[in-house]
Amino acid sequence: MTAIDVNIEAVEPRGTKPKKVLSNRNIMVYGVLIVAAIYYLIPLYVMIMTSVKGMPEIRMGNIFSPPVEITFEPWVKAWAHACTGLNCDGLSRGFWNSVMITVPSTIISILIASVNGYALANWKFKGANVFFTILIFGAFIPYQVLIYPIVLLLSQIGLYTKLAGLVIVHTVFGMPILTLLFRNYFISLPEELFKAARVDGAAFWGIFIKIMLPMSLPIFVVAIILQVTGIWNDFLFGVIYTKPANYPITVQLNNIVNSVQGVKEYNVNMAATMLTAIVPLVVYFVSGKLFVRGIAAGAVKG
């Protein structure tokens, strides 16, 4: 120790201040971050490990130990044979239902909200802000207040339990956040651009398609991320506005795992859970920072 001290005294300070890699500060910062990271990763780890073990191994071992023998049988079963009630065609049905719900809902909700956001940003008309305010506050109304009257409305137009009905519901409930997202984005674009286009004689749709759309690719990606994950993960609307044959994957997953009949096959359950998680996880890992931007943009200003 003393030798080092003497050394430091002897050397005139010069250049970068020497730093200990393992300073107390670093140990604390990285220690906390790593412990937190482990807490966050455990469930994913457990899900994957459980889903590739056989049932005997699950009964014997513990949930954290890696599989002795890897089997993809549970995944196959979860996808193709798992039972919900009397149906035993697996999660695949719910998966394709969710695809059929998510794709049109995402497209329609984004189309409507982008045009609407553009109208609010650049073509303010009398009363527009009143409706916009109602829309934003609407985002805070608990769904429980609205679900029943919407059932009645959808029955009136004959879309209750139909796919189209659920698409409408997703469009409606996605509208506040998406409209806000697009409106704020279009407001952030230089106004001169819009004015110049108007002077050049372009009108509402012309400006939107030729000027605004080409500049808004990032915000559309953010909106797509937001909607795909949101709609795919939805449970409440799926359970209320569809019939069992059309149940989205989340509802079917819950029914499979929490069904009271039969022997519990935990490996199949976890494989089914992973299958449900894959779509949003892929979206998340591929989109990276845009995902953060999406949720932050949607949330902070909401």
Binding site: E12, P13, R14, G15, T16, K17, P18
Partner: peptide, 18 residues
């Protein structure tokens, strides 16, 4: 800012690492 090389003296005191 941490400098890469060189020295800084203030009032005759070497403050490069201060």
């Amino acid at each position: 800012l941490d400098i890469t090389d060189g020295q800084i003296f203030i009032d005759g005191k070497n403050v490069t690492w201060a």
